[in-house]
Design a protein around this nucleic acid. Sequence first.
DNA 1: CGCACCCTTGAACAGTGTCAATTGCCGTGG
DNA 2: CCACGGCAATTGACACTGTTCAAGGGTGCG
Lengths: 273, 273
Amino acid sequence: MPVIALREPNPSLTMQRRSHAAGYVILRELNGLLHLDLPECAALDRLDFATRQLRAGESLVHCGDECRALYAVRFGSLRSAMIDADGAEQGLGFPMPGDIVGTDGLATGRHTAHAVALERSEVVIIPLARIAEIARTLPGFDLVLYRIIGRETLRDHATLYLLGSLNAEGRVAAFLLNLSERYGELGYARNVFNLRMTRNDIASYLGLTLETVSRAFSAYASCDLLRVDGREIEILDREALQRAITAPSAVLRGGRAARPQSGRYGGALALAS
Amino acid sequence: MPVIALREPNPSLTMQRRSHAAGYVILRELNGLLHLDLPECAALDRLDFATRQLRAGESLVHCGDECRALYAVRFGSLRSAMIDADGAEQGLGFPMPGDIVGTDGLATGRHTAHAVALERSEVVIIPLARIAEIARTLPGFDLVLYRIIGRETLRDHATLYLLGSLNAEGRVAAFLLNLSERYGELGYARNVFNLRMTRNDIASYLGLTLETVSRAFSAYASCDLLRVDGREIEILDREALQRAITAPSAVLRGGRAARPQSGRYGGALALAS
DNA sequence: CGCACCCTTGAACAGTGTCAATTGCCGTGG
DNA sequence: CCACGGCAATTGACACTGTTCAAGGGTGCG
């Protein structure tokens, strides 16, 4: 799998990366990475965490692994999925910088999903034991924990809405806009980006087949909402894409004005993480 | 909405209910309700929590409400859903005794989903501030928090699998078996139970229409896997239902032996929470 | 050069959604 | 008391979305 460079790297992230060539980061950086808003405190510079580098295709957690730590993505991107006895996969998400990986193992002590790097990536290892240590050191840290947890829940709920209420084209539109937002928040371009995952990965995540995903891309491209060149995506008409989330096929059939919709397809939802 | 009595009530739960006529429970009971395995400690009997009674149809949390507490269902059952601008709902789950409601508000401080009681219910109110208090009082409580969180994540992932990888009949079969397991764990009958929710509620949760849900019920009934009488369900052939989760229409077409399956439908997954 | 993926496109079919009609139940009010 | 309206559920007919199966092209790599 080719390593595709991101454009317009976030200056602050780059600086942080350079300033810690060794395999660890201090809590202050983790604080910024996860947007924790931790209170200013000496511990921010005292507590440090090991990191781990992943090559494209390398696994971070396997299904069945014991869960001793959570992982905060520092750069790169992963694919998380659950797998059943027959080898059929259900994609669960695409963790990117600032996301947490591994919360699925907290309940039973063993991971039920696996996570694989889609490109060269780095994660910060947060041992569960250290979390308790931080909680003792930093008053008000519990609030921060809640925030992390709640973010995961929100993301899952957004995906449930996506799978339960949207048709194929709506799912693809929502997926791309969500990805665009996340790139934007990381300091990258919102309108042009390279997909790190295959059509199959996307299909697995969206509950579709890869053919349907490919057709949705082509359909959006043919009416100039999108420019698609393999994995390079350019968003040409963000508003129309937004409408396409809930207006089944209306955008693609030349109907600029959404037909009066009733039934299960209707309404918009902020998918921003 | 009629209040339908559960059969074979769990003795221990009944006892707990009787022993606290007033509107509060002590941490020891919460410990048992949520299966927290808290270490034996004086605080178990010292810390107490207010409860809240809900009538059928009453809301526990509204979308947009400020999030100051989590709620542990003590008895009854609720329906949780998110709603978009057009009023279209996406069901998120059916919290039952031992489940936690409200984690969706932890990230932003406001709830994005609402929760409504399906019957007369009671919840234990766990203010976020109290959680910090417990964490200070009880060493090792953080591990317990992780367990609660992880359980939520697991449930969400199971639902994602359901929506992303199963066809209509598979979703209904998985839904019923999951419900059956949860009733069983609560001490009720596994094979006979009354649904608390409408076909529409089920459909919203499963990402289907109510007609499709109804047809799935009828199909299972017509080949004697299920007895369906309105909301009263009896599971007649659990193993066949289990197979029906991943064998699209095979069970209903008289084929006892699953045809060799390829493609997106295949494999089994434990949906037990 | 050949092989393994990845992606696109086409055609036919199957699974679900949509629309509509009917039944039964329940609480309300004549 | 029964009539009525509203709600829940079932069932049928039909249209359409998305899957399945198939073929072909592009690209990277051994």
